[in-house]
């Protein structure tokens, strides 16, 4: 009796996850396995001939200047993640308590996250216009005669994208932090206050360590999400000017869907996978030092 109930339960369990597993298998596992195979071929889309070329694609990647440019741009892009997390923590700490218009401000900070990426892209392109955009207009008004060219120079474009991305991620990071801050027992903060801790000391030594698991979560998910980001950069710069905003994901897209070089694009994709994996493993090892559960 008991056994058949158990059996029924586990069958039901499989039935529940079945559709999802089928989807994952069809649209994720199989393509991933296939791309692993393609990595070792010279497959170009529309060309029916596939040859096995061994490690040629990987060799080509390692000798490709653009690959290193993309790698460097990706690193600069990822700098936005910790910055956004720090800012989000400060904003969340401020919005957690005595501030007027608390709820309105929370909603406002969250707005970018639920706005269409393309709309965001176009608004920022207007804001960043070097000659007659509002940002440089403001900078000139306060006495800076040579404001940066933002998206229009190869030196500053990646940082301009960083600023957009920080602003975009802020709301999401803030909401998660707000939830974590609600979980902090009031007694701990109160005890610190009775012991004479100043507000910034409380934040630094009590609140920050207590939300460290959240920081860790945001760091891992943020890095993974950012390294895969494609849409917003494609909408704003398409990787330019020059190749100054070509990040890895864009580089893969260009090779796969602009030049149809699927084999080469697969190789870069797996390189990107290896990088994400390495990042995540390093963080798991590193977290023991600073994450307090």
């Amino acid at each position: 009796m008991g056994k058949s109930w158990l059996k029924r339960q586990s069958l039901l369990g499989y039935a529940f996850i079945g559709p999802n597993m089928l989807g994952v298998l069809l649209f994720f596992v199989l393509p991933a396995v296939y791309s692993f195979y393609l990595m070792f071929t010279d497959y170009t889309f529309m060309n029916p001939e596939i040859h096995f070329v061994g490690l040629d694609n990987i060799r080509r990647m390692l000798g490709d200047d653009l690959f290193y440019t993309a790698l460097r741009n990706t690193v600069v892009f990822l700098l936005s993640v910790p910055v956004s997390i720090m800012l989000a923590f400060l904003v969340a700490a401020a919005l957690n308590k005595s501030v007027y218009w608390k709820k309105t401000l929370r909603a406002l900070y969250f707005m970018p996250y639920i706005t269409s990426g393309v709309a965001v892209a176009f608004v920022w392109m207007l804001l960043f216009q070097p000659a007659d955009g509002p940002i440089n207009g403001f900078l000139r008004a306060i006495g800076i005669s040579h404001p940066p060219g933002w998206l229009s120079t190869t030196e500053s474009s990646m940082f301009a994208i960083d600023i957009i991305w920080i602003w975009f991620m802020l709301g999401y990071n803030m909401i998660i932090y707000l939830a974590a801050l609600q979980e902090i027992p009031e007694e701990l903060v109160e005890a610190a206050r009775i012991d004479g801790a100043k507000p910034w000391q409380i934040i630094r030594s009590v609140v920050w360590p207590l939300v460290s698991p959240t920081t860790f979560l945001l760091l891992i998910t943020g890095l993974i999400m950012s390294i895969k980001t494609f849409g917003i950069i494609q909408a704003i710069t398409q990787g330019g000017p020059g190749s100054s905003t070509t990040v890895l994901s864009l580089f893969i897209y260009q090779n796969a869907f602009r030049y149809y070089e699927m084999g080469y694009a697969s190789a870069i994709s797996w390189a990107m996978f290896a990088i994400i994996l390495l990042f995540t493993v390093l963080q798991w090892i590193g977290q023991k030092r600073w994450v307090h559960y």
């Binding site: 392109m125 216009q129 070097p130 060219g149 933002w150 229009s152 704003i236 710069t237």
Partner: peptide, 10 residues
Amino acid sequence: PPLGEQLTSK
């Protein structure tokens, strides 16, 4: 127009 400006402002 400078090319950078033309490209980034589409």
